[in-house]
């Protein structure tokens, strides 16, 4: 029963969603829209699950002293401090006790984590966590320089949130992405070699498309290179991409049928 019930539900709802698509009746549309409302709930649960998963993986890593466990503290710090910044914002020009509040909240969380990961004495960490928690609650209650915003996006305008996002997250991710240029150049040097006919065709196509994007060289080749490059993108590339898209589409239909009919059961955890 434990295994059959989910299979039954998937079969019923899977079939319903397939047939509903072809039935443009009011009732069918209403049921479809009702089911879509669930997506909102599932989406929020998925978000919460993601945060919980990140927290648990990081804490476990610290607890078992896995390789590079120290970085998990940075992950957890980043996670909680951004949540805190996102829910708070300044009311006037003064920050008041805001930074002490942030520090006490982070110390509370830090002490709780410490208590969870330590194998020996947990009492001191928990007492300290309690002290910091009381301090943060008191500051939160009596400091009017800043306030919580749980229902609006005002926290996203918080200058600390913006500063962390603009000056830490954006440069870090952009740097990671831009490093690709170095590896692509090195890989192009080693891989783009005319070893056989297919490799030569790939090499030629790549050079033509790159030449097209190059204003230094367009006076030499004129419109010819642009036209050839556009043809490459619009004809062979499009034909190959269409074949891939159609192939993927058929694959999705086959997988969906397997799931609906209970042949594919990987989503239940154990195949």
């Amino acid at each position: 029963m434990k295994r059959q019930f989910p299979l039954f539900l998937v079969f019923i709802f899977g079939l319903f969603m397939v047939f509903q698509y072809f039935v443009p009746h009011e009732t069918s549309e209403w049921v479809y829209e009702f089911l879509l409302d669930w997506i909102l709930v599932i989406g929020i649960f998925a978000l919460a699950l993601g945060i919980w998963s990140l927290y648990k993986v990081s804490v476990d890593k610290i607890k078992t002293r896995k390789a590079n466990w120290g970085y998990s503290y940075v992950t957890l710090f980043g996670l909680f401090v951004m949540i805190l910044f996102g829910f708070t914002s300044q009311n006037g020009d003064s920050w008041g006790w805001y930074f002490i509040f942030v520090a006490t909240v982070m110390l509370t969380i830090g002490m709780v984590i410490q208590a969870m990961v330590s194998s020996g004495q947990k009492g001191l960490s928990l007492i300290l966590a309690g002290v910091f928690l009381v301090a943060s609650v008191l500051i939160g209650m009596f400091d009017n320089a800043w306030s919580f915003h749980f229902y609006t996006a005002e926290g996203l305008q918080n200058s600390m949130f913006r500063a962390f996002f603009d000056h830490i997250l954006i440069p870090i991710l952009s740097t990671m992405f831009s490093l690709l240029a170095f590896f692509i150049a090195s890989a192009a040097y080693r891989a783009f070699r005319a070893r056989n006919l297919l490799a030569s065709l790939l090499l030629l196509a790549a050079l033509i498309v790159m030449l097209r994007f190059n204003p230094y060289l367009s006076p030499i080749f004129g419109d010819y290179m642009a036209k050839t490059s556009n043809w490459l993108m619009n004809v062979p590339n499009m034909a190959a991409q269409r074949a891939i898209v159609i192939g993927i589409g058929l694959g999705i239909v086959a997988t969906a049928l397997k799931v609906i009919l209970g042949i594919e059961r990987g989503y239940m955890g154990k195949g």
């Binding site: 240029a181 790159m210 994007f213 060289l217």
Partner: peptide
Amino acid sequence: QTLAHVVIMAFIVIGNIVYF
């Protein structure tokens, strides 16, 4: 980006010369 592309193209040519 343009200058980097020129350099990459040059390295592709150099790589093929070395290969042959």
